[in-house]
Each structure stands twice: as structure tokens, then as C-alpha cells.
Nucleic acid binder design. Structure first.
Length: 1013
RNA sequence: GGGUGCUUAGCUCAGUCGGGAGAGCGUCGCCUUUACACGGCGAAGGUCGUGGGUUCGAACCCCUCAGCACCCACCA
């Protein structure tokens, strides 16, 4: 396998090329090397490691002379690349390389598509539109994107070829927190910070960073072959999209659906911002449960409370017990002295307390715990905030703790309690720790002023539209997840204390009053404020998902009523992962219904998440990331190790990651090309929740590319400029059969696309091309074309069929493998008189044009059975494959007798027969197989070992008898015969009869070999 | 605590309507066969997680149990 890792790009400065040049330049093989093609068999290419070490190519000098030159096409074969486009794998004399090389093709093809405007919606037919989930503008393509984009592009190309007015709306997301963090990190490396720069200059710095790195992902999307309409590319902080954000905010505010309030929110003390519930991830961690004694103020005793966060004691407002808890009845209403603090707090009764947990007493800290907040509200407790924005103890706490970080304060509090003998015990305790999904910081419930969306009124219609089917989830069960969340939804905190994002269109007067408007001017006008009243705009920005929620209509021009908006909204389907159903899908549905009065899409296709071969989530910190571009282009081991081990959050993991990488990719990653990668993704798109990315799959599909390449090469070489039959000529058996099979395959492909079963669509087309077209039809066609007895007329039909089916199969495959199909189609189609510039806008083949032909199917199925039967005999009798053998046939139905006559030439060649003869009695030294009612006999006087053959037949009889016994048992069951559908019963009866007949015939044969049997 | 999935060949996974268990990769054997060795031909390999139920018939429908995964959630 190591032989496969030769880099495919020509590199004329490398020692490889110099050495190659030393060899006879006239040799075909050398031409191939210089053109970047694979060397012929026997020539060992250098390994990647050798190249890295700079010691390659010695192997080339020892290499044997290359074999015969590659066959050539007629020099008059038309070529169809446009001027300025690299002629890729075609050498100047029109030789097609023996091995598919994606690199020579992909970039030029893509540039050509983009230049000619193929990606913009065309025509006036029914619209088809997909919204690209906007990737982070400064991000780079990961496997999840590549997977998702492959599926979307397949849908887009499939529908475009069917004539839909197809729009794939693309763009990028400003990704507030993520982008701000990146830029802040960079500033940190330069020894400065955003605070030093100030807001305005910081935001400028982010725009600079966007300008610098914002093109990365769109270039990578192009490498994937994504046919999105780049002319309509949008950015969530574009002027137009920002206008949409403001418009939505103001309208929701005016309707009372956005409000500002002091609430307990999830606070990230590292990023210094509020975040929404969804951005908090709870992780199970090992901690402690501290049991602390609070003495009663009257000295009559004490209570013991348990806590996982002892520092919050400083903000306690009460101790709560269950109202029915007999142990504490006497204490309810009394006060306890709060240790370390110079104050007392009440003992209250609340059903929130679980008497069975811990001591049955709970400390209540309303300002720092969501439950306690609710208890505090019920009992009118003060909300004592003891933290600063970055979670240090503030001045509300006793002087001894002020300024301490929360974890430092925890240690100090615990130590002080122990010193006072108030620490009863400390237990190990597993708890769920809330962490920010971006910063990984421990989140604190924190009391601040924030903006919220009142979500229930928006959620209600959003639930209804999924219930009544206006939006359909695929797979359907994701709607359950959606309902579950939507029915328990909480108000959405949309303000963020960041600098990068959409500013909130709210202004404050000095008296603290709030004025909302599309502009400051409008805000003043709304409130009747004079122009000279000083106003200060809210410093916060909106949650990034607020603008993402508007994506399906903001990108189409809303709030303006554009033609695009009326044409493409609602969009056709949303393709996304289940991880953002709540973040994005639900919110788009709510906003779309609210502002467009209609759903944003009719279907939501939820795909799985890409994981590594072991099923682990791919992450930088695990060092198991695969870069889709590396799979396309290949990467040598050292750079791969480098990529995986730099920029780690935990640099100490580097050695482990390096070792694992070297183990798994000892020779780097070979180049597979975009089409193989895309086909792999499509075939992994099953209904499951996660998809494991396995290099074996992509290698297999790279081989598939090569198979297609070579099948096309054969067809081009065979047909050349030879005359073809007129279109529509009725073919022979094989021609009718392959058309029939193609029609069936097209049906399966269509069903696959319709159901978003890309795996089934991919499988159908893979099997058609490899198992039917290559393995059988091309071989059958060769028989006709190579037989001197074939009429010219028939040969012309065979050539046309080869071309037509190949040409249509390339179109059928195009949505999944755009590059190789384009490349080959442009060579194949002209031979049929087609002269388009691209296959991309050609009609998708229709099943109706390849109607079923059951007669041809039955006959070829029988033909295949005969050939397979002989091949099996040959293999199991250890006959040399090259040796031509005689075949005798005996018996057979009327149809089969006719078929044998018609198929004899095919059978003779494909089964490598010397002759076929009909006999009435089998010789005893013959091996036998069955094809329908026909018995196949291969007399092998000199080679057969009767014992071996007898064993083989005996085994076959056992197999048939087992099957017969099962079928007979079924038929012997009266209920089965009485209750099963007649056709099922009939089928079983026929099967029993067939089996019995087959057993009889094999037994006859066996008795001749083994008379005692 | 609530919810959702998953368990089929050595591995990764299909299996649509309940009616003869499939593919790819891997393994084994043969083969440089004029498109392709990134290939061809052939083969081996499965008690469909467990136990029960419904049915003439269950990988598939229902229930039980076991194992695994994920999502949501305020038990200190």
C-alpha cells in the first residue's frame, strides 16, 4: 500500500524529476512521471518519508524498464477544454493517463465554473434554495463542514440539473465570542490587550483580522467543489444584515417581546460576559461537599448545612429546611449566626428542600444560585451579590476576603471555618460543574442587567408548524428533541458584554431611562427627547445567534421586499447537525414565522457528527483532527505531526499525540482527491447520530474514481471516431439489459435523494457503475466488438450504447463527484454530438428514458448464472484460469434453450470455454453446476479428482436439503398455507419444487462419481 | 431525575412493506486476462445483545433485562 503515496503534483525541481530525466525520455513511463502521473508497475515510487529525509529516488535507478506504452486515442479526438484552462490529464498527444489524478483537474475546473456564472440561479422554473449554515468568518474548514457541504452541494447540483432555479446562499458568521477571543489572544502575543486599545481600535483590529483570514474558509469550500452562489455571499455584520438585526430588535421591543431586566444569568468570569443557557455545558467533576455548622443566634443549638461552594456562604440570606421535617420544627423562624460574617440570617421553611439529602438543611444564597434565587423570591430575602465581574470577592463581603479570587476565597473560608471548629466534615462528591462552552471557565450565576427575548409567544407557533407538518424533520424523530426543548423553553438572554458584534439599538439618558430605536435619532423621537438630552448607547452587543436566526431572510434582502425574498423564501431544506437544533434551527423557525409569516424551510435534514475511526469526537486538544484538505491533497507525516502538536491548550499532550499520529499515519496521508472524499461523506450519510471517518472507505472510493476513469478510457479508446448507430437503435440483449439496469439504478438514486439517504444513492450508483457496467456490460460489449462475426451494424449499436450509458452515468454521478465526471463528460459527450461547456447544467438522467426490460433482465440473469457456475467450478477444481475448458449442457426449460443459443458467444468468452455442447447424458467424470433448469457439466478427464468433486457436490446437496427442509416445514404448516397470502405460498411451493429438482440432478451426478451414494 | 438513540460478519455499517441475512474494508486461494493490480476471478465468515410476547411467519411490531452513547435538568 505504501506504493500509493507518491505525491501527484509535478515538482520539476525535485531530485525525483532530475533522476527521472536521466532515464530515456522517450519512454512512456517517464512521460507519465514528468506529467505527475504514477509510474508503471514495477517502478517503485519513493516513499514520503524518503522524500522528507531527502534521500529519495535511488529506487528509480534500479527500476526495470517500463512496459508497453499506453494505448493512444485517435489524434482527431476532439478536446473541449477552453483556452486558458489546463489540459490536465490529457497529454499533448491526447493520451489519457492510466491512473486518475485529481490534482491536475480540480482547481482549473472549479475556476471555470465560477467564472462562467454557473452557480447563480438560472431560468424561471420552480425555485430550489438551501441556506448554507454560515461558518465562522475567521475559521477554517473542518470535517463537519466538509461533510455537510458535500451533502448540500449534492442536493444543489442534483436539483440544478433537474432544471430547478437553484440558489445556494452562502456567507459567513461574525461569531462574536470566538472571533473576539482569537483577536484578543493575538493582541496578547503582541503584549497588548483590547483594554489598552480601547473599543474602537479593537473593533478595527477585528475587522483587520477578518480581512486577513476571512477568505480561508471560502477558498476551502471551493476546494470541496461547493457550487454556491459566491456573487451573493453575505456576512452577518454586513450593512444589510445589520439593518435586519436592528429592525428585528426594535420591532420585538415595541411589541414587548424584548425586555431589559436584572436577573440571575450565567456569567462567564473569564470572558466577562453573560451567556445563554445553551452556552453552558455541565461536566461531571470530582469535588467536595463541605458540611458547615451555623450556630443558632439564641445559643440553643446549631444547624449543619452542606455545600459544594463554601465561598458563597458570604452571600447567604437564609437557611432553609423542609416545612414537614420534624427535626427542625423548633428552629423555623429562629435566626442563625452566619459564620465569618457579622450578621444573622433566618431559618425558613420551603418545600424546595429535600429532607433526605445531607442534613436536610440548605444554605440559601439568592444572588449566586438559580434555586436559591427562586427561594429568595418566595421569602423576600435580600440578594446579596458578593462577586465582582471576574468573580473576585467584592466589598459586600467581610474585609478579610475582599479582592480574593473565588477559589482562593474558598480555601480561606474553609480554613477559617475549620479554625473555628465549624467545619463538621468534608466528603468527596461528584457534581455537575457548569462551564462556558468557549472559555471552559466555571460559570457563576450572577445578578446583572441584561436584555431578554420573551420566548413563549414565539415558541408557540414554532411548535405548531412542526406538529402540523409545515416543517418536517428528517430523520423524523428529531422533532421529538425539538418539541422537548421548545415546550420547556426559557427566556433568551441576548445581550453580551463583548465588543465584537451588533450593538444593541438602545440608549440611556442620565436618569437611567431606556430609549430604543433604529437610530439614536429615532430613539429620541420615539421618546420625545430633545436633541440636546445626552444619551449613551448600550455598550453591549447581541448574541451571535440573534443575527444567525434571521439568516434565511436577512440574506435575501429583508427588510426590503426583494425579488429574491419572494422567490426563495421559504427555502427548500436546511441541512445541519443536531448539535445546533436549539441554537439555530429553533430560533430561525421562530424568527421566520414572526417576521416573514411563514416557515424558513420546509424540511430540516439532520446529519450525524463526524468522528474519528475510534468514534471519538475530533478535537484539537485530542490531536485527532483530520483536515479535509489534507485528505484531498495528501500530507506527509512530519507536517501532519506538526499540525497536530502545535497550538495545543495542553502542550504536555504533544508527545502522546505525536506517537499516536506516527502510529496511525506512518507514511502520512495519501492524496485522495475531492471526489473520493465527497463520495465517502455521501456514503457515510446514514440515519445514525455519528459517523466514523475511516480511511479505508476513502481509499475504496479513490479506487472507484480510478475505475470510472479507466472504464471511460476503455470506452474512449474503443469507440474513438468509429461510426455509431443512429440514436434510438434497438440494441442486442446486452444493450437492452444495461439500459434496464441503469433505469433501475436511477430509480434507486432518486429514492435516495428524495429521502436524504445519500448513502443509498451513492451505493446505487457505485454498484451500477462497478458491478453492472464495468464487470458485465463492458465485458459483454468486448465480446461483440472483438468477434469478427459481429455485423458492423451491431458493433455500431454496441459503441453507441457504451457511450450513451457512460455519458448518462457520468451525469448521474455528477452531484456526488463533480470533478471527475466533468472531466470525463467533456471528453465523452462530444462523441455523441453534445457540445456543452459543462456537465453541471446538463439534464439529470431520467429513469423513464431507460424503461424496464424484464425479458432482457431474465435472460442476462441466467447468462450470469451460467458464467458464475462455470467460474466456480473452475476455481474450486483448481483449474488454471487461462485454460479453456469444454462445457456440456443438459436439460433446461424452453426459454433457457433459446437463451443458450443467443448467449453462447458471451458465455464462451466470459467463462473461457473451448466449446459448448448439448448432451443427454453426463459423463461420470464431469463436475456439475445448475443454472435454472439447465445442468452445466464440465468434463475434465485429465484433471478431475473424483473425491474432491464428490465432496463439492455433497456439500451443495446438504445446502439445498437444509433449505428444502425449511421450506417444507413451512408448507407442512396448515396455518401457513391457510393464512399466508397466496403468492407467498406459491413462491414457497415453487422453491420447494426447484430445490427438489436441483437435489435430484446433483444426486444423479454424485452417484456417478460415488456409486454408493 | 426526564428524554432520545444504538446493539446485525474480524472492523465500519445498510437492511424500505413482517415472508429466502447484505455491502465496503479486512482475511484466505488463484491470476501481470490488451480499460483498470487503485485490477480480475473465487472462497471463508453471522444464534441479528438477553429473555418473553404477538403472528402462519420476527433482524423488523410489543414488553423485560443487560450493555453503550447522546441530549435536557435547579438536589445543596
Amino acid at each position: 500500500m505504501s506504493d500509493e503515496k507518491i505525491p501527484s503534483q509535478p515538482d520539476l525541481d525535485s531530485p525525483l524529476s532530475e533522476l527521472a530525466a536521466l532515464l530515456d525520455a522517450r519512454h512512456q513511463a517517464q512521460d507519465e512521471i514528468l506529467r505527475g502521473q504514477r509510474p508503471p508497475p514495477g517502478l517503485k515510487p519513493p516513499r514520503l518519508l524518503d522524500r522528507v529525509a531527502g534521500v529519495d529516488s535511488a529506487l528509480f535507478l534500479r527500476a526495470p524498464p517500463p512496459p508497453a506504452p499506453t494505448p493512444k486515442l485517435s489524434p482527431t479526438l476532439p478536446t473541449h477544454s477552453s483556452p486558458g484552462i489546463a489540459e490536465s490529464t490529457m497529454s499533448p498527444d491526447d493520451t489519457i493517463a492510466k491512473t486518475y489524478d485529481p490534482h491536475a483537474i480540480e482547481r482549473a475546473r472549479y475556476a471555470r465554473w465560477e467564472q462562467t456564472g454557473c452557480f447563480t440561479p438560472q431560468g424561471r422554473d420552480a425555485p430550489y434554495c438551501i441556506m448554507l449554515p454560515p461558518p465562522n468568518v475567521t475559521g477554517s474548514l473542518h470535517m463537519g463542514h466538509a461533510f455537510q457541504d458535500t451533502l448540500m452541494d449534492a442536493l444543489i447540483r442534483y436539483h440544478r440539473m433537474q432544471g430547478f432555479r437553484t440558489l445556494w446562499q452562502c456567507g459567513t458568521d461574525h461569531a462574536g465570542i470566538a472571533t473576539q477571543m482569537v483577536v484578543e489572544r493575538q493582541l496578547g502575543l503582541k503584549g497588548t490587550s483590547r483594554h489598552e486599545l480601547g473599543r474602537e481600535r479593537f473593533v478595527d483590529a477585528v475587522w483587520d483580522w477578518k480581512a486577513e483570514s476571512g477568505g480561508t474558509i471560502s477558498q476551502q469550500l471551493r476546494r470541496m467543489g461547493a457550487s454556491m452562489d459566491w456573487s451573493r455571499e453575505r456576512f452577518t455584520m454586513d450593512e444589510g444584515l445589520s439593518e435586519a438585526v436592528t429592525e428585528v430588535f426594535v420591532r420585538l421591543y415595541e411589541e414587548g417581546l424584548i425586555y431589559r431586566g436584572k436577573r440571575l444569568v450565567n456569567w462567564d468570569p473569564v470572558l466577562n460576559t453573560a451567556i445563554s443557557d445553551l452556552e453552558v455545558v455541565a461536566t461531571e467533576e470530582q469535588g467536595h461537599l463541605w458540611h458547615i455548622r451555623y450556630p443558632l443566634e439564641d445559643g440553643t443549638g446549631s444547624v449543619v448545612v452542606a455545600t459544594t461552594r463554601p465561598e458563597t456562604l458570604l452571600g447567604d440570606a437564609a437557611v432553609a429546611v423542609h416545612p414537614d421535617d420534624e427535626r427542625y420544627q423548633a428552629m423555623i423562624g429562629k435566626r442563625v449566626t452566619l459564620p465569618l460574617c457579622d450578621r444573622t440570617i433566618p431559618v425558613i421553611a420551603d418545600t424546595y428542600v429535600d429532607p433526605a439529602f445531607g442534613s436536610g438543611c440548605v444554605k440559601i444564597t439568592p444572588a449566586h444560585d438559580f434555586n436559591d434565587y427562586a427561594v429568595g423570591e418566595r421569602h423576600n430575602l435580600p440578594k446579596l451579590n458578593i462577586f465582582t465581574d471576574n468573580a473576585c470577592i467584592n466589598d459586600e463581603a467581610p474585609a478579610a476576603y475582599r479582592g480574593l479570587d473565588r477559589f482562593e476565597a474558598r480555601k480561606r473560608v474553609v480554613a477559617d471555618l475549620a479554625a473555628l471548629n465549624l467545619l463538621v466534615k468534608v466528603d468527596d462528591h461528584k457534581l455537575m460543574v457548569p462551564r462556558g462552552d468557549r472559555s471552559q471557565a466555571v460559570i457563576e450565576p450572577y445578578l446583572t442587567d441584561q436584555w431578554f427575548v420573551r420566548i413563549a409567544p414565539l415558541a408557540e407557533p414554532a411548535i405548531a408548524c412542526v406538529e402540523d407538518g409545515r416543517i418536517r424533520f428528517v430523520p423524523e424523530n428529531w422533532s421529538k428533541t425539538y418539541f422537548e426543548w421548545m415546550r420547556n423553553i426559557e427566556d433568551w438572554c441576548i445581550s453580551r458584554q463583548l465588543w465584537w458584534g451588533h450593538r444593541i439599538p438602545a440608549w440611556y439618558a442620565e436618569d437611567g431611562s431606556i430609549h430604543v430605536g433604529r437610530t439614536e435619532r429615532e430613539a429620541r423621537a420615539n421618546s420625545g427627547l430633545a436633541a440636546d438630552v445626552p444619551l449613551r448607547q448600550d455598550a453591549d452587543v447581541l448574541d451571535t445567534w440573534f443575527s444567525s436566526a434571521l439568516w434565511p431572510f436577512s440574506t435575501l434582502g429583508w427588510p426590503a421586499q426583494t425579488p429574491e425574498l419572494s422567490t426563495f423564501y421559504p427555502t427548500s431544506v436546511l441541512v445541519t447537525g443536531f448539535d445546533i437544533i436549539f441554537f439555530w434551527v429553533a430560533r430561525m423557525i421562530m424568527m421566520g414565522l414572526k417576521f416573514m409569516g411563514d416557515v424558513p424551510f420546509h424540511e430540516v435534514y439532520i446529519h450525524g457528527l463526524v468522528r474519528d475511526a475510534e468514534g471519538n469526537k475530533m478535537s484539537k486538544s485530542k490531536g485527532n483532527i483530520l483536515d479535509p484538505i489534507d485528505l484531498i491533497d495528501g500530507i506527509e507525516l512530519e507536517p501532519l505531526v506538526g499540525k497536530r502538536t502545535t497550538g495545543l491548550m495542553r502542550p504536555e499532550d504533544a508527545p502522546k499525540i505525536e506517537a499516536a499520529t506516527r502510529r496511525q499515519f506512518g507514511e502520512g496521508i495519501p492524496s485522495y482527491g475531492t471526489d473520493a472524499l465527497r463520495f465517502t461523506f455521501a456514503s457515510m450519510a446514514t440515519q445514525g447520530r455519528d459517523v466514523r471517518f475511516d480511511l479505508g472507505r476513502i481509499e475504496g472510493y479513490r479506487n472507484f474514481c480510478n475505475k470510472i476513469w479507466n472504464a471511460s478510457r476503455y470506452v474512449l479508446m474503443t469507440v474513438g471516431t468509429a461510426p455509431l448507430a443512429a440514436p434510438g437503435s434497438r440494441g442486442g440483449l446486452a444493450e437492452r439489459w444495461i439500459r434496464h439496469r441503469f433505469g433501475q439504478a436511477l430509480g434507486a438514486v432518486r429514492d435516495g435523494f428524495d429521502a436524504y439517504r445519500f448513502d443509498l444513492a451513492a451505493q446505487a450508483i457505485y454498484e451500477f457503475i462497478w458491478d453492472e457496467f464495468c464487470d458485465w456490460y463492458i465485458e459483454l460489449a468486448k465480446v461483440s466488438l472483438n468477434d469478427p462475426g459481429t455485423s458492423d451494424e451491431h458493433k455500431q449499436i454496441v459503441r453507441r450504447t457504451l457511450l450513451e450509458v457512460l455519458e448518462a452515468a457520468l451525469r448521474a454521478l455528477h452531484p456526488l463527484m463533480p470533478y471527475i465526471t466533468e472531466e470525463l463528460w467533456l471528453k465523452v459527450a462530444p462523441l455523441l454530438g453534445a457540445s456543452a461547456e459543462t456537465v453541471m447544467t446538463q439534464p439529470y438522467p431520467r429513469q423513464a428514458d431507460y424503461p424496464a426490460d424484464p425479458a432482457a433482465a431474465a435472460e442476462v440473469d441466467w447468462l450470469k448464472t451460467v458464467v458464475l457456475g462455470v467460474r466456480r467450478i473452475r476455481a474450486e477444481s483448481n483449474l488454471e484460469p487461462a485454460r479453456k475448458i469444454p462445457l456440456q449442457v443438459k436439460g433446461g426449460s424452453a426459454d433457457e434453450r433459446v437463451w443458450l443459443g443467443e448467449c453462447a458467444p458471451y458465455i464462451q468468452t466470459l467463462a473461457r470455454l473451448e466449446r459448448i455442447e448439448r448432451v443427454e447424458h453426463a459423463r461420470s467424470d464431469a463436475t456439475a453446476a445448475l443454472a435454472g433448469e439447465t445442468t452445466l457439466l464440465v468434463p475434465l478427464l485429465d484433471l478431475i479428482d473424483p473425491a474432491v468433486e464428490a465432496d463439492r457436490l455433497a456439500k451443495e446437496i446438504v445446502r439445498l436439503e437444509q433449505d428444502l427442509a425449511r421450506v417444507n416445514a413451512k408448507l407442512g404448516n396448515e396455518s401457513f398455507v391457510a393464512r399466508a397470502p397466496a403468492e407467498v405460498v406459491e413462491k414457497e411451493r415453487k422453491r420447494a419444487a426447484d430445490n427438489a429438482d436441483a437435489i435430484e440432478r446433483i444426486q444423479t451426478q454424485l452417484r456417478k462419481l460415488r456409486p454408493e451414494a
